[in-house]
């Protein structure tokens, strides 16, 4: 298994390299460069702008720029963000951290809500609650995140007293420890709710489907026939088997951590990767864009790897190495 993981990571490194090259090219293909904002400022002379272009190496051929970036990467330097005047690595990490924090909460909420709901629906199959919850799941699955986000923010603004953007209040620094927790929790409430709605609906449907399938299996019938109490049948025998396959979903969710919520983050002004990527692409902040793509690509690969490993741990019939490096 270790061999499998190592090989997968090696392939992943090559893929990331290729992705970074493609990204580099795409940014260069787009007209204009990051100095545009300065060129439009009447109080900044052309010579200053030219000096900066020279300093940032923007006048060199693309391949030279890419080669230089690659050389720096080999030394562990991901480059420099023109716009933020800072090394990319730190910048990406700060935003990645906020996104991961948000998405961890989303995953937590999703699982805590969706699993019980799915199980409940399976047990009460075709009863009223099941039908209502299944219908709701469809609604949740279909409502576009950005639309739901706008609606919820609007309602929150109408009600008042609930923050509708950002991560902390202005007086965050002066709050007590508990106050800080509550403050951040309140700021997270809307984005978590919005992003979790879709994810929850999906997970609920899968859980319900799995549970139904398991309940139809032979051993459950046998257990029932042996006279075991119904709750034991459900919670001990069926549940475990129904949840096992779900574990892989967890890995894929992890993979979507970074890019899954970009639009909601932007609408809600959450200081995460969505904001960073939008700003970086719009300002053509070359190295930052590449850094962001690398960061989220890495998360995707790790997530898929995690999913595969969990799948293998969960189902010993799967042998590693046979699935190819997908």
């Amino acid at each position: 298994m270790l061999g499998f993981v190592i090989r997968r990571l090696l392939v992943a490194a090559l893929l990331l390299l290729a992705a970074s090259f493609l990204t580099f090219m795409m940014i260069q293909l787009a007209p204009g460069d990051y100095l545009a904002q300065l060129r439009m400022n009447p109080q900044i002379g052309d010579d200053v702008v030219e000096q900066m272009a020279e300093r940032y190496g923007l006048n060199d051929p693309v391949l030279v720029q890419y080669g230089r970036w690659l050389g720096n990467l080999a030394r562990g330097d991901m480059g420099f963000s023109f716009v933020h005047e800072r090394p990319v690595a730190g910048l990406v990490w700060e935003h990645l951290r906020n996104t991961i924090f948000l998405m961890t909460m989303v995953i937590l909420v999703t699982w805590l809500m969706a699993l019980p709901m799915g199980i409940y629906c399976a047990i009460k199959q075709n009863r009223l609650t099941d039908r209502v919850l299944s219908a709701l799941a469809f609604v949740g699955l279909s409502i576009p995140n950005f639309f739901l986000c706008l609606v919820v923010m609007w309602l929150a603004a109408e009600i008042g007293g609930i923050p509708v953007g950002g991560m902390t209040s202005a007086h965050y620094e002066y709050l007590s420890w508990g106050g800080k927790v509550v403050d951040v929790a309140l700021h997270m409430a809307i984005p978590v709710l919005v992003i979790a709605t879709g994810a929850m609906a999906g997970l609920q449907r899968v859980t319900r489907g799995n549970m139904l399938e398991v309940l139809r299996q032979q051993y459950v019938t046998t257990a029932r026939a042996r006279g075991l109490p119904e709750h034991r049948v459900i919670y001990v025998h069926a549940l475990r088997n129904a949840i096992n396959p779900l574990i892989t979903i967890f890995g894929y969710q992890f993979a979507l951590l970074v890019s899954g919520a970009a639009l909601v983050e932007i609408i809600y002004s959450w200081p995460g990767m969505g904001q960073l990527i939008l700003e970086a692409v719009l300002t053509q902040d070359l190295y930052l864009v590449v850094g962001v793509v690398l960061g989220s690509g890495l998360m995707l690969i790790l997530g898929n790897l995690l999913a595969d490993i969990l799948l293998g741990v969960n189902d010993p019939r799967i042998k590693f190495g046979e699935r190819g490096a997908s």
Partner: peptide, 17 residues
């Protein structure tokens, strides 16, 4: 508890600042 707390609005800072 979170929604209950939110009912009384955002946490307020202490008066020193």
């Amino acid at each position: 508890g979170i929604p209950a707390l939110s009912g009384c609005g955002l946490p307020e800072p202490t008066g020193e600042h």
